[in-house]
Simulated scan of single mutants.
Amino acid sequence: MAYDNSVPFSLTKNGIFYFERRVPTDLLKHYDTRKISYSLRTRSVRIAEARARRAADQLDGYWYHLRSKDADLPGKHRLRMRAAPNGAAPEAPLSDSVTLSEAVSVYLKQKGHGRPVTFHRAAERSCGYVIDVAGAKDLWAYTNKDANAFRDALIKRGLSGSSMTRIFGTVRSVTNIAACELGVSFTNPFSGVYFDKQAGVQECEPLSVDAVKRVQAECLGIDDVKWSHVFGQACSVSKVYRV
């Protein structure tokens, strides 16, 4: 076998790419080997690179979990994915028994493809808040009392009604999709929870006519030709606002 610098964490044998990565010394107690190695089943550099990076990211996430699961960390509610053997990514549950953290895995597997990292973090953070308040239960064990306690905790955090609406919407979506994937009827306790959706929401006042005219005057005073090389098409803004 020969190491291939064009693809991270890889080597080749007879033209086939293999993933190889050493287990960190402080995590060797969790493994029966000092390195993880397996075939990426491709001769393509592009495909091998994508598969190797995905495997490395999965291992980094799992190793972070191993290092952090027993620590009293700020933001520990973000560490929700149940550990899978051999560093593999969590899979969808095989029975109708599923915890909320596993439901997040199902949700992101179905809805997270191609979504930005903020989408994934929102799902983990929102459901993490539930777990912090009501515990890491099986989905069917959550009650209306838990949902109300969750609401009260969000209010205590000082969140606005619009932020609470987004968080509750994410939790409902996660739990509903997990139940749908399992084919089980589910009365969602996070639906219909009352709170003031307008609490803390500030409405932006529209600009006055005088303010708009001042902006237009400033735009008209700009030399479009002089600044076009800096602002590109933004130089046409002054024309848009002319009256």
Rank of each mutant, 00 (worst) to 15 (best):
M1R: 10
D4G: 01
S6G: 14
P8A: 03
F9W: 10
L11D: 04
T12M: 14
K13P: 01
N14L: 05
F17L: 03
F17K: 04
Y18E: 07
E20H: 11
R22Y: 07
D26N: 15
K29T: 13
Y31Q: 00
D32M: 10
T33R: 15
R41Y: 07
S44E: 03
I47C: 01
A48R: 11
A50R: 12
R54F: 03
A55K: 13
L66S: 08
D70G: 04
L73A: 12
L79S: 11
R82I: 11
R82E: 05
A84C: 09
P85W: 04
N86E: 15
A88Y: 00
S101I: 00
S101G: 05
Q110I: 03
G112M: 00
V117T: 08
F119Y: 15
R125M: 11
C127T: 15
G135F: 06
W140S: 13
Y142Q: 10
A149N: 05
R151M: 13
A153S: 15
A153G: 09
I155M: 08
R157S: 02
G161P: 06
S162F: 14
M164V: 09
I167L: 02
I167C: 11
G169N: 01
V174P: 07
A179P: 12
T187C: 01
G192Y: 01
Y194C: 00
F195H: 05
Q198D: 08
G200Q: 04
V201T: 13
Q202F: 01
L207A: 13
L207Y: 14
C219K: 02
D223T: 04
W227G: 07
S228D: 04
F231A: 08
A234Q: 03
S236M: 15
Y241C: 13
R242V: 01
